[in-house]
Design a protein around this nucleic acid. Structure first.
Lengths: 256, 256
DNA sequence: ACCTGAACACCGTTCAAGT
DNA sequence: ACCTGAACACCGTTCAAGT
């Protein structure tokens, strides 16, 4: 049942977003609109046909610019991260320590993730071009800048690579959780617990259970029950800062 | 072109795995076979029709036991994680310090991830039932056990919740990167760099570029070039241990 | 009770044909 | 050069019908 609701949102009723009819197509415009579409609706709803519709064109036209759907998804990932490659502000600056550099880089990636929460799972899970290109730092330029920055500030090769690994794990884990919580709605504390009185008409008990959602079995979990408010608070920025700070301190130790 | 290759692997030619014809269907068997199918092929290739085929049944039969494809995917996530809920070995034992407890739990989740690398992205990205159920610790029981264990060992409420957040981020980031590297193949160092001589017949230069893969522009990246071997080494277990150890130490500090 | 045939609306993709 | 009509093989899903 729920998967049907999912499909019947506005995107499937032809309301497909801005059908701007400027000039001939090009890859950049396709990627921009694809990202905008996903931002507005969801990954699931993005199809070649609907994207064509949004661009005022038949789906087949897209194949001149993208090599099928997989290439479209790869292109979208590249597209949302492109700003990071370009931004000189995310380079090692003359006045920087490596900590300041990593701080800016981390927050830069975080901004991209928050700007496109529904695209970020793609950034996280698409197979990278090389096994050592670790999401979310998915471009050669970005990784090169990272390594150069650290080596420039006294890291030897091993330490720089270890820092790269630890930094990417940290970013990926944190940001993926942050965007996924974003999608799930922010205030389950407002949701009344298991309203067993069933307020309505329904034939079977399933509906009440559904409404209670994850709270259904919360009864058998005293700690969850007691900590629900605490768990529901959005601490993502503070958590990010604290974990990042802790990572930087750990890296500092390996510098010996 | 590549997406077609993707589709034309053995799973689409009717070679769909064990078509065991034992008794009537049930949800558990469906989930087991769905996970086995993805382990063997990929998420992309899993369709209701092919899964039915594998079970010796028409696709429509599945709808008696799973509420559509979305529910199937949710079920698979629950299914691969079910062992963790059950395992008393992942509970807080009388002899445990909280560090030993978290160590065992972390390694338990890691084993699940490595056992089903192609399923793990689902564990990582499916919307959790509640926003405070953070992947990869996706079950009420597991999170309850986590919180209970820490509170039992002297964490106050705030510290326990903070530990839960930090622990889940760490696990998610690390394991997602580990399984995705797993899929990408392990030895890009063996791959010869941009063989521009093009060895063959081809009309345009695209093929050589494709073969070079991510190495195409490695020329402009001196640090990547120099560190390629280092970057290609599989350090995942050591990295896991070190990051986990560091996390535990950090948590120890918050205990005051 | 459990499974299926037939059907529907929708996909991605190709290719010859239009302009 | 750029787009499309028509077609193909495949999807997920429903529902009345079979056993």
């Amino acid at each position: 049942v729920s998967s049907i609701d999912d499909i019947r949102t506005s995107a499937s009723r032809g309301d497909v977003g801005p059908a701007t009819a400027r000039g001939p197509l090009d890859r950049h415009r396709i990627l921009t609109e694809a990202v905008a579409f996903v931002d507005e609706f969801s990954l699931q709803q993005l199809t070649m046909r609907r994207l064509g519709q949004r661009l005022g064109v038949e789906a087949m036209s897209l194949y001149r610019y993208v090599d099928g759907r997989e290439d479209l998804l790869d292109g979208m990932v590249e597209h949302v991260l492109a700003g990071l490659d370009a931004d000189p502000h995310l380079r090692l600056l003359p006045t920087d320590g490596w900590q300041a550099f990593l701080q800016r880089l981390a927050h830069g990636v975080r901004e991209v993730a928050l700007a496109h929460p529904k695209v970020f799972p793609l950034v996280a899970t698409r197979h990278p071009a090389a096994p050592w290109l670790r999401p979310p730092l998915r471009s050669l330029d970005l990784v090169e800048a990272f390594l150069e920055g650290l080596v420039d500030r006294g890291f030897d090769d091993e330490a720089a690579v270890e820092a790269y690994r630890a930094f990417s794990s940290f970013l990926l884990g944190h940001l993926l959780l942050e965007v996924s919580a974003h999608g799930a709605g922010t205030a389950p504390a407002e949701e009344p617990l298991a309203d067993v009185t069933g307020a309505g008409d329904s034939g079977d008990a399933d509906e009440a259970a559904d409404a209670a959602g994850a709270n259904e079995q919360l009864a058998g979990h005293p700690n969850l029950q007691r900590l629900e408010r605490l768990l529901s608070q959005d601490r993502s920025l503070a958590e990010f800062e604290v974990s990042l700070e802790s990572l930087l301190q750990r890296l500092e130790l390996t510098l010996g």
